[in-house]
Amino acid sequence: MRIWHGLLIALGLGVAGGLYITAPAPLDAGFASDHTADTEAGALVFAAAGCASCHTAPDGASEGPQVLAGGHAFASDFGTFYAPNISPDPASGIGAWDLPTFARAVTKGVSPDGAHYYPAFPYASYQNMTDADVADLFAYMQTLPASAQPNQPHDVGFPFNIRRGLGLWKVAFMPDGYVTPAPDDPVLARGRYLAEGLAHCAECHTPRNAVGALLTDQWMAGAPNPSGKGRVPNITPAALDWSESDLIEYFTSGFTPDYDSAGGEMVEVIENLSQLPEADRAALAAYVAALPPIPSP
């Protein structure tokens, strides 16, 4: 009898503990309240973070202001994810959100009603965003056109469809901030902020384990393409011998050193990067050139 009590208590504690560690983290309501949001700066954050590449409708127009209606499908080993509507529509989009809600979504991967987002949304990278950049981004996104297009549910099977489990995933697998050590050089520091934060390069260029966690000891060493076709290349100096000027040109025009053009998803990445100040592309190039060389897995 006593043993049963003990077991029940242990079970109760286990469940309570599990619920506790999988509970979404709250965020300070005064988030960035001392910062005056700047929509022009936000446009650059938006470009650097590549938001439009996933959140514009797959059949959306390529000209004019971007409509973040969502709907783009992303195949993965866990099922198919559909990018949500993040336009300023109050019902289908994020028009009813305030800044702390937005900041929690982007940097913690938690929805307004406290559910964990799947890490297909690169919050593991966006957690490194400065508060000012988050606030500017939010202000810029509110200037974009609203779309009432409804969201499409993700097509993800058991057990990955249990969102609470993502809380455990975050605790166990989400890197705590940056992966590479802080550089002294301000250009490299800016490059690290862009690469490991906004531009979220590692989300594709670093391999993952069986449950989708980034293998940080193989940082940027290339990975299978989640679409199933080919590989995302190793961009560490062990495999990529481009000079910094080669990298800057690539980030600007998309030309490789032998004047082939970028392919696949990188076309959109370059559309975004080419909008940034040249100093940012140079910083990104410096970061990539200084990556620890890691042979392809």
Binding site: S253, G254, F255, V267
Partner: peptide, 24 residues
């Protein structure tokens, strides 16, 4: 020249993305 280079590269990339198949 550098500004025009970005447009040339952009048009190469846009067409390759839509109409060029994978390497292998």
């Amino acid at each position: 020249l550098r500004a025009a280079m970005a447009d040339v590269g952009g048009s190469c990339g846009a067409c390759h993305k839509a109409y060029r198949g994978p390497k292998n």
